[in-house]
Structures are given as C-alpha cells and as structure tokens.
Design a protein around this nucleic acid. Structure first.
Lengths: 207, 207
DNA sequence: ACATATCCGTAATAATAGTTACGGTTTCTG
DNA sequence: CAGAAACCGTAACTATTATTACGGATATGT
C-alpha cells in the first residue's frame, strides 16, 4: 500500500523532471524547479535520490529498463528474424531519438564527471546490443544473412538505423521523429542490411 | 603588427577555452577559468566576444571553417571521385569525432537556447553536405555510383561513415579515434556505399 | 618621450542553484 | 485515537559564476 503510493509519487516526480528537462534543457533544470513542477518538496527529492546526479541516474536506468523490456518482448515472438527487425527497428529508433532519450543524452553530455554518460550507455546501447545480436544470429541461422563477426554486423545495423540522428537531435537540429519516419528509416536499414549481408542477391562481399 | 598580435592572442585564448572545455566539460567551464588558463583578463574576453555565448560562437565558427577548408582543398584535386572519398573520409571522421568537435557538441547540447546547436550544425553538417554532394555527383557522372536523389545518397554515406560515433563520443563512452580507426571506417563506408549504390555488381574478389 | 588605448590581475556585484533546515500538515502504525 | 514518521512549502546557507569595475602595467602611435 505504502509502496504503491511511493512508486506512483516517484513516477510523478520523474515525469516532472522530464517536463522541466525537455522545456529548459539540462542547464536550466534545477532541483527546486523539479520539486515545484511535481508539487513535491526539496527534502523528499534529496531523501529519495540522494543528490541531483542520483535523480538523473534514476531517470536513465528506468528509461533504459523500459527500452530493454520493450525490445525483449518483441524478441519473444517466433517470427522470422528479419521481420522481427522490421517491427523492432522503428520502436528502437523512436526510443533512441524521442524527447526523453534526447533530454537524457543532453544531461549526460553536460555532466562533467561522465558518470551519467556511462550509465546511459551501459543501460542503453550495451543492453540493446546483445538483443540485436541474438536477432542477427537467428537471421544467419535461418540463412537470410551472412557474416562472420556478429558484433560488426550489429554495429552496421545500428549505423544504418540510427546514423547521426541522435546527435542531430541532441544539438537541437532535428524535430522529434514521426512514426512514419521511424518506419521508413527502419525499412531502409533492413533493405540495405540485406543488400550488404544477404546471402541471396549479392553473394558474400566481405573477406 | 597589432592585428597579427591580436589574432595570435585570440588563438591562444581559444586554445585555452578548448583546454578547459575538454578537461572539465561545458558545465565546468567558466569565463574566469578560461581567462586564467589563457593568462588573459575577464575584461578582454568580454570586450572581444561580448559574452560567453559569443566566445563559443567564435569557437564553433572558426572550427567549422577549418573543417570546410580542409575538405574543400581535398576536393580541388582531380582524382576520381571515389578516391577523393577515400582520402576525405578519414579526415572528416576525425574532425567530427575529435576532441574539439566533441567539446563543441557538448557545449551545444548544454545550451538551452539552441543557438549554439544551430550554429554548429549550420557551419558543420550543412556546410559539408554540399561538398559531399559534389563528390557523389561526380562519382555518378564517372559511372561509379547510381542513385536518384543525391541528398539521400549523401545521408547514407554519412550514416555509414559517422554512424553513432559522434553521440557516443559526446556522452563520454568512446575514446578519441585513432588515425587507423578513421581510415578503416572510411574504407568500410566506401566499400558499403559501392555495394549499395555501385552500378556494377560488387564482386567478391577484389578489383 | 609623451599621451593614449589596451590589457592584466584582482575584486566587487548580483543572480542562480545545490544542499540543508524547520514549522505545519498529512499519512501511516499500533 | 495517539504517537511517530514522512511530506509539503518555504526559507536559509553556501558556493559558483556571468558580468562589471578599477588601479597598475604595457604597448602603440606620433
């Protein structure tokens, strides 16, 4: 009972943090601003999160956990690997270039200690990577793709899917992506991946 | 004489700004810190650059100008387009993910007004883009590549070359790239670009 | 050499934000 | 229901920092 309420309150506070963060950027985001936005008190924020970095660490890990669980759910289906990629791609792109992810990346960029960046990367890319690896390995098993190093293949896929979208979002030069955009870009990534690594049309082009 | 000295002093000040920026991140970079590092006075900084944003605007534009002139020089040679890409790629990658560029991207990410990001993008990607477009159009003319929209082709090339290297550098999860790394990645980008857009089928043996 | 503009070093000003503290109120627990 | 714990609203404390100010030193132009 008390646990539920506290968890709900934390969600509210973290939602408020995102609102301020998205509105004013990391530099313009203060603890008191978050507290006011959430109608909470400074004391509560510090009791729960320790300090400002602790609060952002919580945002990062919770957000990454959501990303990971989304993708893992997608992975449980027994569709063939490439169609998994087709439904997982847009979601991943959307999660990595959406407003929340951008706000967190900005926070990590501004954090001089580098700890937020480490947390963001560890809980983000480094958690997603093995999942994608599984998908690509399955695709290879099914005979749709051909590659030697799975790590390089995942890297190539991420380059094709994400490219420089994230950094351009982070410095404020791209609007939030639409669903259609994510869909189209994901399709393009899969198409190109098949052209580059597909076993059918092009033979093995690396060696 | 006075002009030269002043220009030299500005270079020193801007170099000092980079040093502080690279050491302490944008959040930890203060005007007084820069002044002390440069053995200059606050007054001079404000007289010359107006305010903090003005100083960073100067850094961004000067850095972008260097990038552009480097690439333009490369473009003047009359090698065939794809080999231009081969020598231009590593340089571009190095310039976009080097310590200076990363520091500036962090500054832009932390700037809530978005002005630095706009300047960075305008003077960076948006200045480089047309140059790359020229190269790719020349490659098409020479019959090495086949595409309809040159913009999309440039985008694809940039995705392959840069990918998510920049954002990973900015959040502190990648070390500065070595020359060998830039070289290898550029080669990979050109290889893949030829596989994807090449007009002749891309064979498995070489040449 | 002299008059002047610029620059350095340092300090003052003013505002902001991280963090702590406290009285009053709500919520939980026994 | 009584006591305790947690929470809210607000204020205080402290440190930092963008920006301005000023006296002494340095360089410039004539």
């Amino acid at each position: 009972m008390r646990e539920e309420k506290r968890s709900l309150r934390q969600q509210q506070i973290e939602a408020a943090a995102y609102e301020v963060l998205e509105a004013k950027g990391y530099g313009g985001t203060s603890m008191q601003g978050i507290a006011k936005q959430a109608r909470a008190s400074n004391e509560t924020l510090y009791n729960w999160y320790g300090d400002k970095q602790g609060l952002f660490r919580a945002l990062v890990t919770r957000n990454a956990e959501e990303v990971r669980s989304h993708l893992e759910a997608e992975l449980q289906t027994d569709h063939d690997a490439l169609s998994i990629l087709g439904s997982l791609g847009p979601k991943l792109l959307n999660l990595l270039t959406g407003d929340r992810a951008v706000a967190l990346n900005r926070a990590a960029a501004a954090d001089s200690s580098g700890e937020l960046g480490a947390t963001l990367s560890r809980a983000g890319r480094e958690a997603v990577f093995p999942l994608l690896e599984q998908v690509l390995l399955r695709a290879r098993q099914e005979g749709h793709l051909r590659f030697e190093e799975s790590g390089a293949a995942v890297g190539l896929y991420l380059d094709l899917l994400i490219g420089d979208q994230q950094i351009r979002r982070v410095i404020g030069r791209l609007p939030a992506p639409t669903d259609e955009f994510c869909e189209a870009r994901s399709k393009r990534a899969v198409t190109h991946l098949r052209q580059l690594l597909g076993s059918q049309p092009y033979g093995d082009g690396h060696k």
